[in-house]
Amino acid sequence: MSTRTVLHEADIARALTRISHEILESNRGPDDIVILGIPTRGVALARRIASLISDFSGASVPVGALDITMYRDDLHRNPTRSPQPTSIPAGGVDGRVVVLVDDVLFSGRSIRSALDALQDIGRPAAVRLATLVDRGHRELPIRPDFVGKNLPSAADERVNVRLAEVDGEEFVTIEGSEA
Rank of each mutant, 00 (worst) to 15 (best):
L140Y: 13
L129R: 00
L118S: 05
P124D: 10
G148D: 03
A130M: 04
A117Y: 09
K149P: 09
G148M: 08
I142C: 02
H137V: 02
V127E: 03
A117M: 09
A126M: 10
D145V: 04
E139G: 15
G122S: 09
A130E: 01
N150F: 09
L151K: 08
A130N: 01
F146N: 04
S113L: 02
A154W: 14
T131Y: 07
N150D: 14
R135Y: 05
A125S: 14
L132V: 06
L115Q: 10
P144W: 00
S153G: 10
A154D: 15
L151P: 06
P141L: 09
L140D: 12
K149W: 11
I142T: 05
R128Q: 10
P144R: 07
G136P: 05
L132N: 05
I142S: 02
G122H: 11
L129V: 02
I111C: 02
P144N: 04
G122F: 08
H137L: 06
G136S: 04
A114F: 03
R143V: 13
N150A: 12
V133M: 03
S153E: 10
R138P: 06
P144D: 08
A130P: 06
E139K: 13
K149S: 12
R143W: 11
K149L: 14
P144V: 00
L115R: 08
R112D: 00
P124H: 11
R123K: 15
I142N: 01
I142F: 03
G148L: 00
S110T: 15
I142D: 05
V147L: 13
I121W: 05
V133I: 11
D134H: 10
A130S: 11
N150Q: 11
T131S: 08
Q119W: 14
R112F: 03
L118T: 00
R112H: 08
R138E: 13
A155L: 15
P141Q: 10
G148A: 06
D120R: 04
Q119S: 15
